[in-house]
Design a protein around this nucleic acid. Sequence first.
DNA 1: CTTTCGTCCTGACTGC
DNA 2: TGCAGTCAGGACGAAA
Length: 301
Amino acid sequence: MPAPGIDDAEAVPRRRPLYSGAMPELPEVETTLRGLIPVLQDKILASVTCHVPALRYPLAPDFADRLQGRRFVALGRRAKYMLLETDDAQALIIHLGMSGSLRVTTPDTPREKHEHVVFTTEPGVSVRFNDPRRFGFMELTTAAAIDSHAMLRNLGPEPLGNHFNATVLAQALAGRRSPIKAAMLDQRVVAGLGNIYVCEALYWAGISPRRLGCNVAAARIEALATAVRRVLAEAIAAGGSSLRDFRHGDGELGYFQKSFAVYGREGEPCPRCQTAGETDCAIRRIVQSGRSTFYCPRHQR
DNA sequence: CTTTCGTCCTGACTGC
DNA sequence: TGCAGTCAGGACGAAA
């Protein structure tokens, strides 16, 4: 039995699986937002309750007061931030962190563990922010201040928007002395890409995560831009198709089963190897900038 | 300037 | 069975 990678000092062995299904990346945020629209858009907030003084950052003492009685007139997304605009020109920024979720329930449903903030509308529907690790956060600012907000102003182009393409990506990667994996996680290069989808996009583009950003040829940057859009769009489509189930089930929005080609699959053959019957090929896990990277050494150069 | 690394947090797991 | 230790992730801020 061949043991590929056993002599590779940088390959980090891993004995247990990753729990990859529960992390809110851009597709989960987008799906959550779509689920929230029918529940929150144009509905008056009858009550807002904060059960904790802080999530990742402190909640303003008047957080609830400022939202009570207001209506959300527009719900949008920038990178992994949800942006909810009120009828009095406030803007609520919500980030799900790595374990946050929003659930739709009835107001009389007993409060669950880690349920930190509850919004209840006049039609009698509650949207509850649940976040065990409290890496998520909410901030209330003004609609006018959104574009210049410290967390938003340095973001690169939306990967699914019209301003993201191979030319823009090539420009952002030019001169980058860091591995392409690290560069793609930089929110100034592309906004909203997380660890999972960077691994997946690099795989489908056939680019080694170790390759320096400045050493990725133009044609491969083109493939990368295409792969980024494709993996995100497919995930959103998968989430969208399951949205109805969430609303009729326990009400949890935005989470869905999605299988990945390489992420969390150390030791398994990648889809291309499997198709080619190459059983000696195994997906590898390495650590780059303190984050796990999964890739196929055969198909990524 | 660029790039890396520590910090925050808690649940799920491993190993003794 | 119990408990200490490890690890995952995004974004920021400090350090190199």
